[in-house]
């Protein structure tokens, strides 16, 4: 399995506090990975580093077959390179319709001039419809995103992520605030997505992680504590001490 993303020896500190400490991590194509860890373990900062929001003090972040460094790229360039990110809280553009939201996310030329001259082609329209039905929002496609329920917003955001056609999906607590039925739907979407691309899920909910049925990485104080199947890591004494035992 080829490596899609390789993070090695990354450290970052805020005003002396080491949020990430010599962290190494890698993930291949079409792989699902769950990241768990207690509060302050550096999960969000880890995602910030990959997506270019935070610059690490040291370390390397290597991407793709051509092994380009992500550290020199802007957030937008990283996103165009194929890294999609879903935030903890649903962030969709509430003032615009579901359709507009999806259209904006669709993989197309992103330069201002091309966007200004952009005319939605039949293919784009079809893609948007298809995505909407995939996330179960076909009936809501011309409603404003702000009018959706919390769960629907989550799905819309995942739909926008899929529309980007990323090679790596970073998903931060997708199941937070969802009903049981909604969770199942979310799991299905993620598992389906992981067949064609790499998916990294940050989650607290063990039940949800178990359902994903994938390799798990445990973070603690900014570095990897354990890695393996869920059963493997939950048996690890260190993990029990810092996380599960409490």
């Amino acid at each position: 399995m080829t490596t899609l993303l390789e993070v090695s020896g990354v450290s970052v500190s805020f005003d002396g506090f080491k949020a990430i400490n010599n962290l190494s991590f890698q993930i291949g194509n079409a792989e699902m990975r769950a990241i768990i860890g207690p509060n302050g373990a550096g999960k969000t900062t880890f995602m910030d580093i990959i997506t270019g929001k935070t610059r690490p003090d040291q370390g390397r972040v290597i991407w793709g077959e051509k092994s380009v460094s992500l550290l020199k790229m802007s957030e937008a360039q990283i996103a165009r390179a194929g890294v999609g990110r879903k935030f903890q809280r649903p962030t969709v553009f509430e003032d615009q319709t579901v359709f507009d939201n999806l259209l904006m996310a669709l993989k197309n030329d992103r330069s201002p001039w091309r966007v200004l001259m952009f005319k939605p082609k039949f293919r784009d329209l079809g893609k948007a419809e298809e995505l909407a039905s995939e996330i179960g929002l076909s009936d809501e496609i011309h409603r404003k995103a702000g009018e959706l329920s919390h769960g629907q917003k989550q799905w819309l955001e995942i739909g926008m992520l899929l529309a980007q056609e990323p090679r790596l999906l970073l998903v931060d607590e997708p199941a937070a605030g969802m009903t049981l039925a909604e969770r199942e739907h979310t799991t299905d979407i993620l598992v389906e997505a992981a067949k064609t691309r790499a998916v990294v899920v940050v989650e607290h909910d063990m039940e949800f992680v178990r359902r994903l049925n994938c390799k798990v990485t445990v973070l603690h104080e900014g570095s990897v504590l354990a890695e393996g199947s869920l059963d493997h890591v939950t048996a690890n004494q260190d993990v029990i001490d810092v996380y599960l035992g409490r």
């Binding site: 957030e75 937008a76 999609g84 935030f87 553009f93 509430e94 904006m104 992103r110 201002p112 966007v115």
Partner: peptide, 15 residues
């Protein structure tokens, strides 16, 4: 989108 959530637009890949 930039007006409402600049960061999100950035993560969608728009400069």
């Amino acid at each position: 989108g930039i007006r409402d959530d600049e960061q999100r637009v950035r993560f969608l890949g728009y400069s």
